[in-house]
Amino acid sequence: MRATTSIFLVFAAGVAFSLLLLNNDGLLIQIWVNFADDVDFLIRQHIYLVVLSGGLAILIAVPMGVWLSRPYMRKFAEGAMQGLNVGTTVPTLAVLALSMSFLGIGVLPAIFALWIATLLPIVRNTYVGIREVPDFLIEAATGMGMTRTQILFRIELPNALYVIFAGIRTALAINVGTVPLAFLIGAGGLGELIFTGIALDNIEMMLAGAIPVALLAMLVDFIFLQIQTWSISRGVNPLR
């Protein structure tokens, strides 16, 4: 229900905004004519940054969260969570700035900063999701003769999956929202059009960047919402 409502709203907002711009001397058409090539080129860079930093973050954060949730890590895990909580409080622009001060400019420091900012919420949610699986389920699974590995893959992860996915969605929203800033440290992407447009007071150029960035963010969230809705067992999925 929430998902359908959101799609409708995005669509309605998009139409309203486009109408507004079209009335304004066919602005949208001008943007399209003048910036189609730039957008085409920059959006590829943009998506490259999202996919690489986001993908690496998911691939590393989930196992890290699982590892922190293991019983032998218990003493260390709470401290690590405190650290992660402070880490997620640090604004992403600061993360980018710090990354730039240590690694210089270019794609690498940008990917590194995006990766760190995306990593933290996923690690935290994976850890919390697994720790929230009730002890008695683990006891029942052990008592029925499951091995530690079987318990992890058949009980702990499936029951934590909803929370893990919530973490991934939050993390990707942060990621997609931060990628435009990557331009500032020389990694390209649609931020180039936005920031240059603001600096030059060129509204067309700025919108040529801002509109696709907003649409891309909604698209990514929408895709992951669908994955979250349909890939997680109905038994543990509040969305179904």
């Binding site: 929430r2 447009g197 801002a210 960035v213």
Partner: peptide
């Protein structure tokens, strides 16, 4: 809540941009 969550999804840089005109 649907509208509010869509707004949060929009990257701040894009929102600033969209508000300028």
């Amino acid at each position: 809540l649907g509208i509010a969550s869509v707004i949060v999804t929009i990257p701040s840089v894009a929102l600033f941009g969209l508000m300028i005109p």
